[in-house]
Nucleic acid binder design. Structure first.
Lengths: 235, 235
DNA sequence: GCTCGTCAAGAGCGGTGCTCTCGTTTTCTG
DNA sequence: CAGAAAACGAGAGCACCGCTCTTGACGAGC
């Protein structure tokens, strides 16, 4: 890539890359909190203090891993979206969702680093806000394109679950919500995950003042989800 | 409460309570990973090794905090539900959602302990599965009651956002999704949080084999959300 | 009154992030 | 090409961590 002016710079870039690689591997086995510069140094046959020539602190290494993570997730999402026909907006949305899930399941610890509990004492620097929204940008692009194409209308009739799926939902949740048909159970599941997804975003700082009054927006979302489930009053 | 047979047992119960209290306070300032038995001991004027007479390991103290957390959240949800008229099912759902959000915002570190990244190396024992589903039990009760009362129909027309709310949504997300009306943006936000809520549940082990084929259920949820947003194909 | 279990204290083990110094090696400059 | 300057690895050291083991004091029950 770079013409690597001096030999020193070349070996420096190589070692930096190796540190990141080992750190990511260690992240996968020990978790975000268990990331240890000493262990990285040990695995490289270095002495611990030498690592600090490459990353001034553990947090800087963490920042690099976070940025790499957001970029990897973003790329996966972008690839999934690009592989779907442009006018198939429901398909593009579905593809994006599966891309997120597949990536997260393949890299659970990196996902935890991005969307789990914030690392105590760690403050994400400004460099992360670009890569952080790559998935959102894709999502926004789909919606905006659908709007331009006139393919974004009022809420459509929600698709019904097949009998197999409805049966599995009933089998899993029958003791918790007896008598509720599987179709409703599946919509309820979406509402439930939306609730905790919102709360996690807000508590873990993913919103960062996106709205003036989070509570108001949340309240409306909740009511939308209630209607989606089909809840009505009874006399 | 207990007749506290011996003085020794009484002081032991008191000290145990004090340890938990200090640990919870420490959780709020240092985060879940920064929970330190030594620091707890220091704050109590004890020597570190003495703590192990009360909690055999750091993980046991953590388990206690987790169970207490689930119970606190569960109680808050139960209270919110009980305070709403029985037949007002949309209101009960809304109350539950706000209870979850309010509790989480008031106790962010405890929420992180429950729904954030799993603590590395920590395996939750069986004792946690009871308190863990208290909120879900409430939610299930609402749905089941609505079903019995005949108040659980097909998805209702989604409520429209007022102009103020729609305007705020447009202001916040206009650069990301230009041209999309605020009403759709708000529904899209629910879909987005539902996606990440699902993935977080699955990655962080909250599902624990609830379904035979997570991917199938997920795929259906995603399509429901797509329809809720109003996405359709364009020629 | 004596035994036995409970307890706090202390030392110690191996681990962590991070700092500082020291001698070497590489690069840049005169 | 020689010398100054920068970069580097190694090592010692600081304060902290979870956890274990031993020791000596204390109180409850026989």
């Amino acid at each position: 890539m770079t013409a690597s002016r001096t030999a020193r710079e070349r070996v420096r870039a190589e070692l930096t890359r190796e540190i990141i690689e080992i750190a990511r591997r260690q992240l996968a086995t020990e978790g975000a909190g268990g990331l240890s510069l000493r262990a990285v140094a040990r695995e490289m046959g270095m002495v611990s203090s030498a690592i600090y020539r490459y990353f001034p602190s553990r947090d800087d290494l963490l920042t690099t891993l976070i940025i790499d993570g957001y970029n990897a997730l973003g790329e996966a999402v972008e690839r999934a979206d690009a592989a779907t026909p442009e006018g198939d907006f429901p398909g593009r949305w579905t593809a994006v969702c599966h891309a997120v899930r597949d990536w997260a399941l393949a890299h659970p610890h990196e996902y935890a680093l991005l969307y789990g509990s914030p690392v105590p004492g760690y403050q994400a620097p400004q460099d992360t806000i670009g890569p952080r929204v790559r998935d959102l940008v894709v999502f926004g692009g789909i919606l905006a394109a659908a709007q331009r194409a006139g393919a974004l209308g009022p809420a459509a009739a929600l698709p019904e679950a097949g009998p197999a799926l409805a049966g599995e939902a009933e089998a899993s949740l029958a003791d918790l919500m007896p008598g509720v048909p599987g179709d409703v159970l599946l919509r309820a599941l979406s509402a439930w995950t939306s609730l905790y997804g919102w709360v996690s975003f807000e508590v873990f700082g993913q919103f960062q003042g996106a709205f003036q009054d989070n509570r108001l927006v949340f309240d409306h979302s909740v009511k939308v989800l209630g209607a989606m489930m089909g809840l009505t009053r009874s006399g």
